[in-house]
Amino acid sequence: MSDKKGPITLKVILIGNSGVGKSSVMNRYVNHRFTNMYRATVGTDFLSKTINIDGDTVTLQIWDTAGTERFQSLGTPLYRGAHCCMLVFDVTSKASFSALDGWRKEFLIQGEPKDPSDFPFIVLGNKTDLSDREVSDKLARQWCEEIRGEYFEGSAKEDLDVEKPFLRAAQRGLQQYKKHTLENTGHFQITCKQPRETRNTCEC
């Protein structure tokens, strides 16, 4: 589905507890807007944005999922086929940070990525504009190391460092994408066709 010619489509999925600001982060990044009014996401919101990563034109398909329990109980078919997963938490809520481990595991189970140990996770601490911080930078980084994820923090409200994590997600997603396209061709065409396939990709 995503292996079409033309711009590469990367699927990035945002997960995390309800109220941590997944939709806000996405909206800030894609539409450059922010609203203070909180309204829980219904189901999943889908937005796309075309960007340029190291010379490649990439369409980011961003899936903003509902963090509320109702939607968790319904299963999450949309996790499948993701190229990168963004785990979002609220730096003023310890609980939202602790929950990330569960979110990550759920993602690995439901999303069935090909290589779970190497799947790219971006961890994003939101709401750094607030003063009552509960999760320190150090703590977050420590956990990120454990899961081999990358840590970013910022504020959707103040438009602080919202771009970076998405760019990084796109880069990591692109690596993932390329790796698996190659691996795929390798799986199916073990003997003679692999070199030719490689030549083709070189030309474009």
């Binding site: 919101d45 889908f46 319904l74």
Partner: peptide
């Protein structure tokens, strides 16, 4: 819901 304005919504 205001969120459908921002993109495409998909909900059960």
């Amino acid at each position: 819901s205001s969120s459908f304005r921002e993109g495409e919504g998909w909900t059960p």
